[in-house]
Amino acid sequence: MAIDFETLVFVIVSGAAVAGAIGCVFASRVAHSLLWLMLTFFAVAAVFLMASAEMLGAIQILVYLGSVMLVVQFGVMLTRRRIQGAESLPTLNFISAVTGVGLFALMLALLREVMEHPMWDSEVAGAPTTLEFADALFNEWTIATIVLGALLAMAMIGASYLVRDERLINLVWDTGQETVTASPGVGMPTRRTFPDASTGEQDGGEEE
């Protein structure tokens, strides 16, 4: 009995993906979760390559591992103090055990449904090519691509709006002087000082 080389590679890659996913869920620290998740994303990119979707594998590595994981890493670092330790550990009690068993049963049922679906009975037509992908993306799905660009722009603007700093002390020009001078230089707005602006959560509500 000869084992196909491609099957062997697929088993190894999918095992890496599942191991990374399990490690992501059960790692005790957030940074370790992130590293396990990166292993999973690499493995999924490899599966994309094996399904001859080379472009999608490249997109997966560039977008997920290049930007999304970087953003999540920034999030981990910026909220670091309180999420290490006992607070990030998952809860282990009766309800979560029952939920885990139920989810496992759901996964088995779903696996059976997917594997035995009648759509797999037809002949395998083979993967499309990257040229067809580009043609479909920019001819057939042009409107969707444009709307997607608008959505990404709106998401980035919204994200930067959500994390803005509302305190007025950060919005005025910092001239490096501690006191308010009588006649500031031309083009320099007067530095406004607040007694507690640097310590408290000054809810100024000032827009730019």
Binding site: A17, V18, V25, T40, L103, F104, L110
Partner: peptide, 9 residues
Amino acid sequence: VILFGIGLL
């Protein structure tokens, strides 16, 4: 499906 189940968990 397996990855979805683990993510849901």
